[in-house]
Structures are given as C-alpha cells and as structure tokens.
C-alpha cells in the first residue's frame, strides 16, 4: 500500500512538473517570435549591405529601387517618417494631454463615466478607416482651403495621424494622472492654490513622466503606422522641402513595394532593411518609455 502511495505521489509530482514545463515552453513563444523577427529581418536584409555601404543606404538622397542601376538611399524615407511623426505629435500631444486633463479635472462624475470609455473605444478605430477618411474627406478639404497642389501630403498625413494617436495619448495620460495621489491635490488646495495652479504645478509634474510615457508610446504608434500614411502622405520618395510636399515614409514604402519586389532581389532585401530600421527605432522608443515609466513609479512610490 505504501508503495502505491509513493508511486502516486511520484506521479503527481511528475504531472506538476510536466505542467510547469509546458507553460514555461509556451511562455517562451513571445521570445521566440521576437528573436525570429530580428533574425528574419537581419538575414533578409544583410545582402543589401554587401552591395551598398550602410552609410550610403541610410543617407543616400535617392530612392529609385527599380531603376537600372538601382539607387537605394533611404534618407528621404527616414526624413519623411520623422517629419510626419513630428507633425502628428504637434497635433496629438496638446489635444491628447488637454483631453486627459479635462477628464481628470473638469469633467463631472457622469461626464467622466461617459468620456473615458468613449475615448478608449475611439482609440480602437482601425487605421485603414483613418486613412480612407483622410483620403476622401480631409485631403480635398485641405487642398481647397490652403490652395496646395495636392491634398495628399505630409501636412495632411500629420494631421490625420495626430488625430488618430490622440485617443491613445489621452487614455494613457489620464491613467497617469489618476495615479497621482489625491493627497497632493488636497495639500496644494489647502495652501491656497487654485485648481489651475494645483493642476499645473503639482498634479502634472507628479504625473509628468507618466504623461511622457504616454506621449512616447503615441510616438511609437505614429512612427510604425502604415495604412494611414500609405493612403494620405502622397507617396513621393523625396526629401521633403516643405510641409505640403508629398512624402513616402518608411512604413508605406514597405507596404507599397513589397508586392512588386521580386523575391530575393536587392529591392526585396532593401525593404527588409527598412523594416529593420523601423524595428530598431520602435525598440529604442519602447526602451525609453520603459525607463521613464519605471522612474515614474518610483517617484510616486508605486513600487515596480
């Protein structure tokens, strides 16, 4: 009997161990995918650098991948991505943070119960819908209004992208604000500060790094956004000279040209190299966001 008992106990231990290993293995899937993505991007893009020097790939001013001989400088694409992202930030940071502050400070209980979920739901509107809206509504309006040759340009893309990132920024910034202990607010008001002073001098600085994280994550989303810029930015691979030039950001280059690129050709490899650049940029953005949000939690004493 005792032998049976021991046997059963061993079986249970074995089973427990097996489950643990099963879950551990499955849990490593995301690591596998991340490594897989890096590996794929590297192997598929390395051939480019055997033909083209990395510096002339990065800083070359012309992107004519299908010309003969092809010219593959992604500088115009990088500048386009940065221009459009910077423009989007100009739109979404003030409006997004302002919206968060409104919900935090001015909205009544009912308004908040309505606005918070609405903002979150709006954050889920697919990017293709923004792109489509930008193309059929915003671009023609801006073209008429500003008298520019084409409505499909960096300015329109920035505007649409900025609006698209606004709910995300607002939602994350509101979370950061709500983490600020109410005691800070009470202390400030009890010293005779008015609500605006309390908001700008105590609550916002306390939530500052949380808000920065929100902004940086919004930026990451804007840099990596594909469909909106593909449809709205105009698609010309030139270094933009003005806000109203059509541009071709990195993401839309990949999306537009992947279908035509011959598998295994230099063009194909170059598109993966652009993907690698994008990956590195968003990785950097994420790391910065992570560092700042860690500091934020420490500052407010929220632990990890």
């Amino acid at each position: 009997m005792s032998a049976m008992k021991i046997q059963r106990k061993a079986l249970v231990t074995l089973k427990e161990g097996a489950y643990k290993w099963l879950f551990a293995t499955l849990a490593f899937a995301s690591l596998v995918f991340l490594v897989g993505i890096v590996f794929t991007l590297l192997t598929e893009s390395l051939p480019v650098f055997s033909k083209i020097r990395p510096t002339s790939f990065l800083f070359g001013p012309f992107w004519y991948p299908t010309a003969d001989p092809p010219e593959m400088g992604i500088w115009p694409l990088i500048t386009a991505s940065f221009a459009v992202t910077a423009g989007a930030m100009v739109v979404c940071v003030p409006i997004g943070v302002g919206t968060a502050l409104f919900i935090h400070e001015l909205a009544g209980r009912r308004q908040r119960a309505f606005l918070k979920p609405v903002i979150e739901i709006l954050a889920g509107i697919p990017s293709i819908v923004y792109g489509f809206f930008g193309m059929v509504v915003v671009a023609p309006i801006l073209q008429d209004l500003l008298g520019i040759p084409t409505g499909l340009c960096a300015f329109t893309a920035s505007l649409v992208l900025g609006i698209m990132a606004t709910p995300t920024v607002a939602s994350l910034a509101e979370d950061a604000l709500s983490f600020v202990p109410r005691s800070f607010r009470e202390a400030s008001l009890a010293l005779g500060a008015n609500r605006w002073q309390t908001l700008t001098r105590v609550v916002m600085p306390a939530a500052g790094s949380g808000i920065s994280t929100a902004v940086i994550l919004g930026m990451g989303r804007a840099v990596g956004e594909t469909m909106t810029v593909l449809m709205v930015a105009g698609g010309a691979a030139m270094v933009p000279k003005s806000l109203f030039d059509p541009v071709r950001p990195m993401t839309s280059t990949i999306a537009a040209e992947m279908g035509e690129a011959v598998m295994g050709s230099l063009h194909y490899n170059a598109l993966f190299a652009i993907g690698l650049m994008l990956f590195l940029i968003t990785l950097g953005v994420n790391i910065i966001a992570e560092i700042i949000s860690r500091r934020f939690r420490l500052k407010l004493g929220l632990g990890r």
Partner: peptide, 23 residues
C-alpha cells in the same frame, strides 16, 4: 491644514516649502 498622512509633493524640500509663496 495638516493631513493625516504626510503628503509632501514629489519635489525637493525647498520646492515644497516655497510652493505656497510662489503660487
């Protein structure tokens, strides 16, 4: 007013002290 739980702002000691005058 002094509250139940100490509630200094997450700023420096000096900034905490000068807050009331600055506002």
């Amino acid at each position: 007013m002094v509250f139940q739980k100490p509630n200094p702002f997450p700023k420096s000691i000096y900034e905490n002290m000068s807050y009331g005058l600055r506002i």
